[in-house]
Design a protein around this nucleic acid. Structure first.
Lengths: 237, 237
DNA sequence: ACCTGAACACCGTTCAAGT
DNA sequence: ACCTGAACACCGTTCAAGT
């Protein structure tokens, strides 16, 4: 432990000020045109200090991504408290996912950005490890739900699949839908025909029906769960 | 039509030389460090000429993406000629997708890159329209297959879904798996547990089982189709 | 009509000087 | 011990001059 004049809390707070400034800029403009100078201009201290906290521009963006994944985890955790069967809880998570995406497109897209190699190559080791930790946390939440479904006798996973694989099936599918529908380009036929909300719920049901996860989509009225989740999340985000 | 001293073919060839140089650089290094100067250094003409062909660095990368999507379409088209039921043809496409990804990670990741807003914002209108056209072409190929499955009485799509939605379900799922497993970071638990090949086939089957697409995964031996497709594609890519 | 590359504006990163 | 911002190296893009 090295001696510090500036205490940990001030440091942590300043880091947040930098992240907030970067997020504000991206909201008002776009991520492509973000520069360190533009962050510095919105912050009450100098370039050198910003570089004391973040080793590169990409490190700042990765920091933002981590904050988004962390929020997502909190949101998903609260979704699992939906009072119903496990399949409903999973739907509740999907709804939370799409609601948060609708409420804040900027932060939603940031999570996708974290996956691009350009960022991975320039972010600090420390920040990348944090990203991995947060990713595992999210994965663990999914796996716990799947474990519970198995215990409740709602789900028998195929012999060739493990719980993480089932979790990954639902996660990657959601991620894919959002990645492909991320930009609101109206010129594109695909994006005119598809609607994130509808596709997300529908594909989530397809995968769970494919797994034979009870109750099957046609044997249950999911609308109350969907409506309640939308209601609940709209108060949170 | 404006009069030209340099004919169309020379122009087209030179465009390809620029794209090849950029791809070579990315292969040898990485996309994050690509600069126009580095492309110019690998090409027998000047910066100004490069800018005569591409309006920005991002335009060059989008050009590369388009070339990748175009190759993918050709590959998928050849996969649909697999001699079997439509569900097998769909599996054959998935196999072709994963094989091409394994054979050339660089080009595969480029397709994902095209979806990031940083590129969309700086590429030329012309190049983006081309991207949309190629995307539609790919979508159309999927939709034709689904139509054929319906005609063959193998598939009855749910009343709340359209053929493009079913096509999008399979496409976005594949895309999501590849996006999340794209970088070979061994540090990450998720990527240690998952294997693109296995997940892609397995999730593809989950979605199609969920749709009740005949024959269901447990009622048929898919291995011959998988093996034959791998064999066939390995000769192509 | 087309190509060239010097020139310009801007960006990420560093580090000597200051407090 | 920490902060500052001038300085540096580099990058994307343009455009006057040349052929």
């Amino acid at each position: 432990m090295s001696p510090r004049v500036v205490d940990e809390e001030t440091l942590k707070a300043r880091e947040q000020v930098i992240l907030d400034a970067a997020l504000d800029y991206i909201r008002e403009n776009d991520i492509a045109s973000l520069t360190v100078d533009k962050v510095v201009a919105r912050v009450p201290f100098s370039k050198g200090t910003v570089y004391n906290h973040f080793c590169s521009k990409e490190d700042i963006v990765t920091g933002l991504c981590n904050s988004c994944v962390s929020s997502l985890h909190a949101l998903f955790q609260s979704a699992t408290r939906f009072d119903g069967n496990v399949r409903e809880k999973m739907i509740a998570i999907c709804i939370a996912y799409m609601m948060s995406a609708k409420a804040d497109t900027t932060r939603f897209m940031l999570v996708i950005t974290a996956k691009t190699s350009a960022l991975n190559q320039k972010a600090s080791e420390e920040r990348l490890n944090e990203h991995i930790r947060l990713e595992q946390q999210l994965m663990h939440l999914f796996c716990s739900l799947i474990q519970k479904a198995i215990e409740d006798k709602d789900l028998v996973i195929p012999v060739h699949m493990s719980p993480p694989q089932v979790a990954f099936a639902i996660w990657s599918m959601s991620f894919g839908i959002i990645a492909l529908l991320q930009d609101g380009l109206e010129r594109c036929d695909l994006r005119r025909l598809m609607e994130v909300e509808r596709e997300l719920v529908s594909h989530c049901n397809l995968v769970m029906d494919g797994l034979g996860w009870l109750p099957l989509s046609q044997d249950f009225d999911w609308q109350p769960c969907i409506d309640a989740s939308k209601e609940r999340v709209s108060g949170l985000v």
